[in-house]
Every structure is written in structure tokens, then in C-alpha cells.
């Protein structure tokens, strides 16, 4: 088949048509422009600048010096970076599953037509809108490493000895994870709730008529219908976990003995405590690549496709 031949006349016609479309739709472009500009300036430019920085040696205020792949070479040979990488992966593993399951459970509980259910929903959501500084301060108190600490007092009822939650190198990361699950479950609960409420009631009714019990209805009807929400929650929770910073910064300062130093905390230390912006940028790029790969793998294995809905 012969290809389309571009004639001067057709080019003029096309150009005129584009100009007409621009004249007709300029208001649409006007509305899109603010967010487009914000995206270009605050996302794309910063991202490009970070890539540029990762090849530089820069203290933020001094002159920049091109170091090629020097930052990356140093990073990949740095034991503290790999330690932070391990901590981040472990944190992601112990955070994503539990937070997804707990928030789904809570969502299922508050997805009822009961009096004052709005109060319960708000209560579960409250940590999400509470400042992480306040949350961290309260949790430092809860996790006091002696018998009089609230959590130790509670486990004392079970006959368990007091634990040094944030001080024991093997307990510090699970403790931070626990706090983070508590602090963020409300957000995922809202996502699940939206998913649950979009499942048609007729399907539940049909299943019940067919003799399915509550558990079977949930397991065989509700959960499969929540697949899009599940994928979204898992991907978002994973990305959030790989970018963990605030709770570590406020609760443990990356300690004890780097047991809670995540990659983002390490990036912050490199860039803003030891003033190595280029090195920090290189670590950020590596983290970005890891997040991208993980997200793509999740997309593939969880079956995220166009016809998911």
C-alpha cells in the first residue's frame, strides 16, 4: 500500500486546522496551564536537576565539580548505603502486607450501616491528619524501654518481660513499622472503603441466595471485586514504604547502630548533614530505579491492565 503523500496544500490545510483547534480550545489549555507549569517546574525540572547533580560534587553553596560516575561508584561500594538498602527492603516487606490487611479489616468493619459509624471512621482516620511529630512523640512515650512504659505494661499482663523497643537493634525496625502502620492505616482504609462501596450489592445478594455464608461472600465475591483497589493499595503502600523517612527521622534518628537507617534517611544525611548533594542525588536516583522496577514487577504480577475495571 502506498504511503500518504504530503503535499504543500495538505500541509497548509493541516496547519490551519491546528490553528483553528488552538483558537477554539485555548480556554482548555488555559485551565491546564497552571498544573502543567507546576509539574514542569516542581517535578520535571527538579528531577532533571537531580540527575545532573548526581554527576557533580557539590555542597549546595560552593562551586560544582563534575565527577562523572564517581558518586555512583562510591555509593555502590559504600557499606552504609547497602545497609540502608537492606533496612528499606525489610521495612517494605514487613509494612506493606500488614498495613493492607489491617486497613482492609478496619474498612470492612466500618463499612456498616450503624449509628455513629462516621465517628468510628473519623477515629481511624485521625492519625492520618495528625502531625507525624506529635505521633512520634507519643510513640516514644508508649515505647519507653522500661516496665512502666505503656506498651511494656500491656505486655506485662501477658507475662512477657519489658522490651527495649527502640533501643534493641532487632526490635527497633518492627517498632517503627508498628507505629507507621498505626499512623497510615486510616488512609488505606479510605481507599478500601471506596472499593467496598463500589461492589454492587446485587452480587452479594445473589451469593447469599445461592447459600454462601459471610466468609464465603467476602472471600469469593467481595475480594475479587476489590482487585483494582488491592493493586492500587499494594503499589502505593510499597512506594511509600520504599520512601520511608519521617518516622525514622523523628523516632530513632536512624539508630540504633543504623538499624532503622532507610535509603531516604541516608540520602538526607548525605545531602544535608554532611553536605554532599551530588552523592545524595546519586542515592536518590538509585532508589528511584529500584522503586520503578518494583512497581513494574508489581504491575506485571498483580495483573494491572487497561481492562482491570
Amino acid at each position: 500500500m502506498a504511503g500518504r503523500v504530503e503535499t504543500p496544500a495538505s500541509a497548509i490545510v493541516r496547519s490551519r486546522s491546528r490553528w483553528r483547534s488552538l483558537r477554539t480550545c485555548w480556554t482548555w489549555y488555559l485551565f491546564v496551564a497552571p498544573s502543567l507549569i507546576l509539574f514542569l517546574v516542581f517535578t520535571l525540572f527538579i528531577w532533571a536537576f537531580m540527575i545532573y547533580l548526581s554527576f557533580q560534587d557539590w555542597s549546595l553553596i560552593g562551586p560544582r565539580a563534575f565527577v562523572g560516575l564517581g558518586n555512583y561508584r562510591e555509593l555502590l561500594a559504600n557499606e552504609h548505603f547497602w545497609s540502608a538498602f537492606r533496612v528499606t527492603l525489610v521495612y517494605t516487606l514487613i509494612f506493606v502486607g500488614p498495613v493492607a490487611a489491617i486497613s482492609l479489616l478496619v474498612a470492612a468493619l466500618v463499612n456498616q450501616r450503624l449509628p455513629l459509624i462516621g465517628v468510628f471512621r473519623s477515629a481511624y482516620f485521625l492519625p492520618v491528619v495528625t502531625s507525624i511529630s506529635v505521633i512520634a512523640l507519643v510513640w516514644r512515650f508508649i515505647l519507653i524501654p522500661r516496665a512502666e512504659g505503656p506498651l511494656n505494661y500491656l505486655i506485662g499482663w501477658l507475662g512477657l518481660p519489658p522490651q527495649e523497643w527502640l533501643i534493641d537493634t532487632s526490635l527497633a525496625l518492627p517498632s517503627v513499622t508498628g507505629m507507621q502502620i498505626w499512623a497510615t492505616a486510616g488512609y488505606y482504609m479510605i481507599l478500601w472503603l471506596a472499593g467496598l462501596q463500589s461492589v454492587p450489592e446485587e452480587l452479594h445478594e445473589a451469593a447469599r441466595i445461592d447459600g454462601a455464608g459471610r466468609w464465603a461472600v467476602f472471600w469469593r465475591v467481595t475480594l475479587p471485586m476489590l482487585r483494582p483497589t488491592t493493586i492500587f493499595v499494594v503499589i502505593i503502600a510499597t512506594i511509600g514504604a520504599l520512601q520511608m523517612f519521617g518516622a525514622v527521622f523523628l523516632l530513632t534518628g536512624g539508630g540504633p547502630v543504623r538499624a532503622t537507617t532507610t535509603v531516604v534517611y541516608y540520602v538526607w544525611q548525605s545531602a544535608f548533614m554532611t553536605y554532599r548533594m551530588g552523592f545524595g542525588a546519586a542515592a536518590s536516583i538509585v532508589l528511584f530505579v529500584v522503586i520503578l522496577i518494583v512497581a513494574l514487577l508489581q504491575r506485571r504480577f498483580l495483573g494491572w491492565t487497561e481492562d482491570i475495571y
Binding site: R140, I167, F249, L250, G255, P256
Partner: peptide
């Protein structure tokens, strides 16, 4: 207090 072993200066 052992909790002084961890945490940023201000928070501890």
C-alpha cells in the same frame, strides 16, 4: 534513661 541512646538530639 536508655532511650537517650537513640533518636535525634531534639527528640531524645
Amino acid at each position: 534513661p536508655r532511650e537517650g541512646a537513640v533518636g535525634s538530639e531534639q527528640e531524645a
